[in-house]
Structures are given as C-alpha cells and as structure tokens.
Design a protein around this nucleic acid. Structure first.
Lengths: 108, 108
DNA sequence: ATTGTATATCGCAAATGAACGATCTATTTG
DNA sequence: CAAATAGATCGTTCATTTGCGATATACAAT
C-alpha cells in the first residue's frame, strides 16, 4: 500500500547512540564495565574469577566492548590489562545525556 | 579448565540498564524516539510517512519500545497515539546518567 | 627446546532479531 | 450490514548473537 523501500539511511548520531547502546545491551557487559569503573583496570583473569562463565565467552564480550570502543586492552605479556577507554566513555556519556536531556513535551 | 557454570544471575540494575540499552540499540528506534521527543506524541501513520520501512516493521519496532516501557500507546480509534512514557524516560535517563557518572579512575 | 600461563580465536548449535508481505482486528462511516 | 482505515500480528527468510569446548597464539620461565 505504501512506502516502497527508499532505502533507509541514518545520521552519524543515530548510529553512534545505537552502537553504544548495543554494547550495553547485555547484562554481563554492564557488569564488566561496572567492574572496570571501580577498578579502573583489570586482567581478563580477574573477570573469569568474578563471572561464572566460560573464559571464551568472557573474552568474546570483552571483544564486543573493545569493538564498540568502550574499553581498551594493554598487552602486558602474558596477560592483557583492560581499562575503560576514557575518551569513548566521555563521548558515550554526553551522547546519552544529550539524547535524554531534551525532555519530551508533556502529553497534551 | 575452570569455572563450571555456576549459573549466572544479575542485579535488577544490571538488567534494567541492559534492557533499556537494548531498546536503544537500533538506529531506527533512536529515530522514532527522537521524533517523539520533538513531537511529544504521534500516530503510527506519521512515522510510516517519515520512515521508509514497511508498516509492519515500524509496528514491530514500536512494540519493542513499548515492551521496554519507553513509550506508551493511547488507543484513539481507529488510530493509536504513541507518546514517550515520561516515567520510564526519566528512569532511563537517571540510570544511564548514574552508570556513566562514576568516572573510572585514571589508568595507573 | 619444553612447559606453563593468559588470553584469543574457531566452529558449532541454539536463540534472537530484522525485515517483509499477507492477513487479521477493531472501530468509524456509509 | 458493508466498506474503509489504522494498526497489530503471523509466518517466513536471513543475519546476528550467545554460549560453549577445543584449539591456537604469544610470551616467560625452566
């Protein structure tokens, strides 16, 4: 009846929010980030002690957080020290803040 | 080698953040919410005019936003007026804000 | 060179998500 | 009651995500 797919495109802002949100969309990743927030940094091993999941699964979640830019890994053989990526963290913070800031008008 | 699945459980906070984040994890849903933010409310029809996607697809995204609690629909036959759910919006806002607020310690 | 340690990557299976066209539902209008 | 309208739901297809065990990699220590 309508709208034959004109091919959807998004703004950089829309994609950025969605991308960060996706990284935050699994509770175990929230836990990992909360942990890093407190500790500043930690090794994967610490997380596998704290979180009852296979090491490979945790490694995969770390990869997703890294791909989203929210964390970074410092190679410190034979281990890897993960830290929050300050820059991305600030960006995500302000991008979400701006998104929610603009209060929707009250229902009329 | 380790950690035989003790069965993972999450806090309500972790699940709440992940749940809201999941709702925000697709750019078209960001667009819909931004639109509602500006307009306060609108009918599905308005969205199908604005967004080049099948009506059924938009309806599905609306359902996800509704399931997450971020929007609500007022039945106003034969149409449905969607609005941001103020209460959930505020909750999401403060939950994300609190999550990002606690600055991670600087890398040592 | 062998061994050990920490972590990543692979390959799989099951579950979930995205998009669509088609159909159903509920209500208003004729 | 019939037709029109707005929107939800269904069923399908295809892609992505999740979680796991097994294996690979990279370096340090012996």
């Amino acid at each position: 009846m309508q709208r034959t797919t004109t091919e959807m495109t998004y703004t950089a802002r829309e994609e950025a929010i969605a991308r960060y949100a996706k990284a935050l969309s699994h509770p175990v990743r929230i836990r990992i980030l909360s942990f890093l927030e407190k500790q500043s940094c930690c090794f994967t091993g610490k997380l596998t002690e704290e979180i009852p999941m296979a090491q490979s699964t945790i490694s995969q979640h770390l990869k997703e957080l890294k791909d989203a830019g929210l964390i970074q890994g410092d190679v410190l053989p034979p281990r890897i020290k993960y830290c929050i990526n300050q820059k991305a963290w600030e960006e995500a913070k302000s991008i979400f803040s701006a998104f929610f800031e603009q209060e929707p008008l009250v229902t009329k």
